[in-house]
Design a protein around this nucleic acid. Structure first.
Length: 206
DNA sequence: GACACGATCTGT
DNA sequence: CAGATCGTGTCG
């Protein structure tokens, strides 16, 4: 009886399993909107709600780091669903991605923005709620760097959770646009965001 | 080795 | 709109 109750409580948030990631990259990008990004470190937990993502379609996508095949930096990570892929952009910013399918053309999802999670105060985990719009800002807020590249999002210190009661949370209104900041494949509409959120990194995109 | 480049952000 | 800043890939 007591055992059962404990189980229920512990499952209020569920860690996304590998099967979630091992699907069509665009679908994963879309479905990551509204999920929780979590970083457990030194006994504290940072978490926030994902409101903006972009899909990168591996070998078939000129804007992807796999555009000209696997390299040292991408091998052993791309093609392994649920792994984190973190790279340094412009020498300054770490960008966090979730690796998707284990079949060609492979893929990953860039986490571009998160927003604070509304809480009713009924939880006493002591999490710190983080606000950050933009891929470089969110990694800085979460303390994520390229040393985290290759970590397993299904069990290591960085995870993505399904909210305790997704159906009751205000549902995301998902819109699609072209991706931001790239010079190739500008026409591919692979950016997803929650237009109900005030924390999307860029507004007025087509 | 040397060199060019970039899925960004900030300050002017 | 220029500049910061550095890991990575490419070329020699």
């Amino acid at each position: 009886m007591m055992q059962e109750l404990v189980v229920v409580v512990r499952h209020r948030h569920r860690v996304l399993e590998r099967e979630f990631y091992n699907r069509d990259t665009s679908l994963v990008a879309k479905e990551l909107i509204g999920k929780w990004l979590v970083h457990k470190e030194n006994g504290s937990i940072l978490r926030a709600r994902i409101v903006e993502t972009e899909a990168y379609l591996g070998l078939s996508d000129p804007a992807s780091h796999l555009a000209s095949g696997f390299t040292k930096r991408t091998s052993n990570i791309w093609g392994h669903p649920g792994k984190a892929y973190v790279f340094l952009c412009y020498g300054i910013h770490a960008c966090l991605n979730a690796i998707t399918v284990d079949w060609e053309p492979y893929g990953c999802v860039l986490i571009r923005a998160v927003e604070p999670i509304e809480t009713d105060g009924s939880e006493d985990y002591g999490e710190i709620i983080v606000r950050s719009d933009g891929p470089g800002r969110l990694t800085r807020a979460f303390g994520i760097d390229i040393g985290h590249s290759g970590k397993d999002l299904t069990k290591d210190c960085i995870q993505i959770w399904t909210p305790k009661d997704e159906s009751i949370e205000s549902p995301p209104r998902i819109e699609t646009t072209t991706r931001i900041g790239i010079s190739k494949a500008k026409d591919m509409r692979l950016r997803y965001y929650d237009s109900n959120s005030a924390h999307v990194s860029k507004r007025s995109q087509v």
